[in-house]
Protein backbone atom coordinates (compact mmCIF):
# COMPACT_ATOMS: atom_id res chain seq x y z
CA UNK A 1 0.00 0.00 0.00
CA UNK A 2 1.05 3.55 -0.66
CA UNK A 3 2.06 5.81 2.21
CA UNK A 4 0.29 8.99 3.06
CA UNK A 5 1.44 12.22 4.64
CA UNK A 6 0.92 15.78 3.53
CA UNK A 7 -0.41 16.98 0.26
CA UNK A 8 -2.19 19.85 -1.44
CA UNK A 9 -5.04 19.53 -3.86
CA UNK A 10 -8.11 21.19 -5.24
CA UNK A 11 -11.46 19.52 -4.51
CA UNK A 12 -14.91 18.63 -5.79
CA UNK A 13 -17.83 20.03 -3.75
CA UNK A 14 -20.83 17.72 -3.26
CA UNK A 15 -23.13 19.37 -0.71
CA UNK A 16 -25.64 16.52 -0.45
CA UNK A 17 -26.47 14.92 2.90
CA UNK A 18 -26.85 11.18 3.58
CA UNK A 19 -25.01 10.04 0.46
CA UNK A 20 -25.44 6.29 0.67
CA UNK A 21 -23.19 3.62 -0.79
CA UNK A 22 -25.90 2.68 -3.31
CA UNK A 23 -25.35 6.14 -4.87
CA UNK A 24 -21.56 5.85 -4.64
CA UNK A 25 -21.68 2.50 -6.46
CA UNK A 26 -25.05 1.01 -7.45
CA UNK A 27 -25.54 -2.71 -6.72
CA UNK A 28 -25.71 -3.69 -10.39
CA UNK A 29 -21.97 -2.94 -10.63
CA UNK A 30 -20.97 -5.24 -7.77
CA UNK A 31 -20.60 -8.32 -9.93
CA UNK A 32 -16.85 -8.05 -10.42
CA UNK A 33 -14.55 -10.32 -8.43
CA UNK A 34 -11.53 -8.01 -8.28
CA UNK A 35 -11.02 -4.58 -6.73
CA UNK A 36 -10.10 -2.60 -9.82
CA UNK A 37 -12.14 -0.56 -12.25
CA UNK A 38 -14.99 0.55 -9.98
CA UNK A 39 -14.14 4.23 -10.54
CA UNK A 40 -15.81 4.03 -13.92
CA UNK A 41 -19.17 3.58 -12.19
CA UNK A 42 -18.61 5.92 -9.24
CA UNK A 43 -21.86 7.88 -8.68
CA UNK A 44 -23.05 6.23 -11.88
CA UNK A 45 -26.67 7.33 -11.72
CA UNK A 46 -25.75 10.92 -10.85
CA UNK A 47 -22.96 11.22 -13.42
CA UNK A 48 -24.98 9.76 -16.29
CA UNK A 49 -28.58 10.20 -17.33
CA UNK A 50 -30.81 7.19 -17.84
CA UNK A 51 -30.12 7.27 -21.61
CA UNK A 52 -26.38 6.96 -20.87
CA UNK A 53 -25.52 10.57 -21.74
CA UNK A 54 -23.26 12.59 -19.44
CA UNK A 55 -25.11 14.70 -16.86
CA UNK A 56 -23.09 17.90 -17.22
CA UNK A 57 -24.77 19.40 -14.15
CA UNK A 58 -23.21 16.83 -11.81
CA UNK A 59 -20.12 18.13 -10.05
CA UNK A 60 -17.77 15.35 -11.19
CA UNK A 61 -18.59 16.29 -14.78
CA UNK A 62 -17.86 20.00 -14.39
CA UNK A 63 -14.48 20.82 -15.88
CA UNK A 64 -13.86 23.70 -13.52
CA UNK A 65 -13.44 21.23 -10.64
CA UNK A 66 -10.52 18.89 -10.15
CA UNK A 67 -8.39 17.24 -7.49
CA UNK A 68 -8.11 14.22 -5.24
CA UNK A 69 -10.37 15.51 -2.46
CA UNK A 70 -14.15 15.09 -2.29
CA UNK A 71 -16.02 17.43 0.05
CA UNK A 72 -19.48 16.06 0.84
CA UNK A 73 -22.47 16.61 3.12
CA UNK A 74 -23.35 15.13 6.51
CA UNK A 75 -23.51 11.32 7.00
CA UNK A 76 -21.43 10.34 3.99
CA UNK A 77 -21.30 6.62 3.15
CA UNK A 78 -24.38 5.42 5.00
CA UNK A 79 -26.15 2.20 4.05
CA UNK A 80 -24.57 -0.94 2.66
CA UNK A 81 -21.19 -2.22 3.88
CA UNK A 82 -19.97 -2.68 0.29
CA UNK A 83 -16.26 -1.84 0.23
CA UNK A 84 -16.77 -1.33 -3.50
CA UNK A 85 -17.75 2.25 -2.50
CA UNK A 86 -14.27 2.92 -1.12
CA UNK A 87 -12.66 1.12 -4.09
CA UNK A 88 -14.69 3.26 -6.53
CA UNK A 89 -13.68 6.52 -4.84
CA UNK A 90 -10.03 5.49 -4.75
CA UNK A 91 -10.08 4.20 -8.31
CA UNK A 92 -11.58 7.49 -9.49
CA UNK A 93 -8.66 9.29 -7.81
CA UNK A 94 -9.88 10.43 -4.41
CA UNK A 95 -7.44 10.14 -1.47
CA UNK A 96 -9.39 12.24 0.99
CA UNK A 97 -13.11 12.63 1.73
CA UNK A 98 -14.13 15.60 3.87
CA UNK A 99 -17.53 15.65 5.59
CA UNK A 100 -19.11 16.77 8.85
CA UNK A 101 -20.10 13.15 9.62
CA UNK A 102 -19.27 9.69 8.28
CA UNK A 103 -21.10 6.40 8.55
CA UNK A 104 -19.08 3.86 10.55
CA UNK A 105 -18.62 1.01 8.10
CA UNK A 106 -17.68 3.34 5.26
CA UNK A 107 -15.13 5.10 7.46
CA UNK A 108 -13.45 1.79 8.27
CA UNK A 109 -13.53 0.66 4.66
CA UNK A 110 -12.00 3.94 3.50
CA UNK A 111 -9.15 3.71 6.01
CA UNK A 112 -8.50 0.08 5.04
CA UNK A 113 -7.97 1.34 1.49
CA UNK A 114 -5.84 4.29 2.58
CA UNK A 115 -8.52 6.81 1.69
CA UNK A 116 -8.56 9.33 4.55
CA UNK A 117 -11.98 10.38 5.88
CA UNK A 118 -11.63 13.80 7.52
CA UNK A 119 -14.44 14.83 9.81
CA UNK A 120 -14.79 18.59 10.28
CA UNK A 121 -17.34 20.81 11.99
CA UNK A 122 -20.52 21.73 10.05
CA UNK A 123 -19.32 25.37 10.03
CA UNK A 124 -15.93 24.47 8.59
CA UNK A 125 -17.61 22.26 5.99
CA UNK A 126 -19.95 25.07 4.91
CA UNK A 127 -17.06 27.52 4.54
CA UNK A 128 -15.01 24.97 2.62
CA UNK A 129 -17.87 24.15 0.24
CA UNK A 130 -18.53 27.85 -0.35
CA UNK A 131 -14.86 28.58 -1.05
CA UNK A 132 -14.59 25.75 -3.57
CA UNK A 133 -17.82 26.76 -5.31
CA UNK A 134 -16.64 30.38 -5.47
CA UNK A 135 -13.14 29.47 -6.54
CA UNK A 136 -12.68 25.94 -7.93
CA UNK A 137 -8.91 26.45 -7.74
CA UNK A 138 -9.01 26.66 -3.94
CA UNK A 139 -6.03 24.72 -2.64
CA UNK A 140 -6.64 22.50 0.36
CA UNK A 141 -3.71 21.30 2.43
CA UNK A 142 -3.96 18.09 4.40
CA UNK A 143 -1.30 17.29 6.98
CA UNK A 144 -1.78 13.83 8.46
CA UNK A 145 1.13 14.12 10.90
CA UNK A 146 -0.25 17.34 12.39
CA UNK A 147 -3.86 16.14 11.81
CA UNK A 148 -4.85 19.42 10.20
CA UNK A 149 -6.76 20.53 7.13
CA UNK A 150 -6.36 24.10 5.85
CA UNK A 151 -7.50 26.35 3.01
CA UNK A 152 -7.19 30.10 2.54
CA UNK A 153 -7.15 31.47 6.11
CA UNK A 154 -9.07 28.59 7.61
CA UNK A 155 -7.54 25.69 9.49
CA UNK A 156 -9.05 22.84 11.48
CA UNK A 157 -7.70 19.79 13.23
CA UNK A 158 -9.19 16.32 12.83
CA UNK A 159 -9.24 13.10 14.84
CA UNK A 160 -7.75 9.78 13.81
CA UNK A 161 -6.65 7.00 16.13
CA UNK A 162 -2.92 6.67 16.39
CA UNK A 163 -2.85 3.09 15.12
CA UNK A 164 -4.74 3.97 11.92
CA UNK A 165 -2.54 7.03 11.47
CA UNK A 166 0.56 4.88 11.64
CA UNK A 167 -0.95 2.43 9.13
CA UNK A 168 -1.56 5.28 6.67
CA UNK A 169 1.85 6.82 7.19
CA UNK A 170 3.77 3.59 6.88
CA UNK A 171 1.55 1.74 4.42
CA UNK A 172 0.68 -1.06 6.89
CA UNK A 173 -2.63 -2.85 7.06
CA UNK A 174 -4.61 -4.82 9.63
CA UNK A 175 -3.96 -8.24 8.10
CA UNK A 176 -0.22 -7.92 8.71
CA UNK A 177 -0.87 -6.91 12.29
CA UNK A 178 -3.43 -9.64 13.01
CA UNK A 179 -1.34 -12.40 11.46
CA UNK A 180 1.61 -11.31 13.61
CA UNK A 181 -0.67 -11.90 16.63
CA UNK A 182 -1.84 -15.43 15.79
CA UNK A 183 -0.16 -16.98 18.83
CA UNK A 184 -2.11 -14.66 21.14
CA UNK A 185 -5.30 -15.50 19.25
CA UNK A 186 -4.63 -19.25 19.61
CA UNK A 187 -4.02 -18.84 23.32
CA UNK A 188 -7.30 -16.92 23.61
CA UNK A 189 -9.17 -19.76 21.88
CA UNK A 190 -8.03 -22.22 24.56
CA UNK A 191 -10.10 -20.49 27.25
CA UNK A 192 -12.95 -19.21 25.10
CA UNK A 193 -16.52 -20.47 25.56
CA UNK A 194 -17.39 -20.90 21.86
Amino acid sequence: MSTFNTFKSTAYPLPVENIDTDQIIPARFLKATNREGFGENLFRDWRFRKDGSVNSEFVLNQEKYSGSILVAGHNFGCGSSREHAAWALKDFGFNVIVSSFFADIFKGNALNNHVLPIQVSPEFLTKLLQSIQKNPNTQIEVNLEAQTIAFEDEKASFEINSYKKMCLQKGYDDIDFLVSNLSKIEAFEQQHIY
Binding site: R35, N109, N113, I175, L178, I185
Partner: peptide
Protein backbone atom coordinates in the same frame (compact mmCIF):
# COMPACT_ATOMS: atom_id res chain seq x y z
CA UNK B 1 -22.26 -6.50 12.57
CA UNK B 2 -21.47 -5.94 8.92
CA UNK B 3 -17.90 -5.59 7.69
CA UNK B 4 -16.11 -4.56 4.52
CA UNK B 5 -14.21 -6.95 2.30
CA UNK B 6 -10.79 -6.02 3.75
CA UNK B 7 -12.18 -7.11 7.10
CA UNK B 8 -13.56 -10.32 5.58
CA UNK B 9 -9.93 -11.05 4.63
CA UNK B 10 -8.79 -10.19 8.15
CA UNK B 11 -11.26 -12.66 9.67
CA UNK B 12 -10.19 -15.31 7.14
CA UNK B 13 -6.58 -14.75 8.17
CA UNK B 14 -6.98 -14.53 11.94
CA UNK B 15 -10.61 -15.12 13.02
CA UNK B 16 -10.27 -11.65 14.55
CA UNK B 17 -10.74 -7.97 13.79
CA UNK B 18 -9.06 -4.78 14.95
CA UNK B 19 -11.79 -2.58 16.36
CA UNK B 20 -12.39 0.33 18.66
CA UNK B 21 -15.15 -0.46 21.13
CA UNK B 22 -18.33 1.37 20.07
Amino acid sequence: FGIGTSQVAQVFASQSLLLTKP
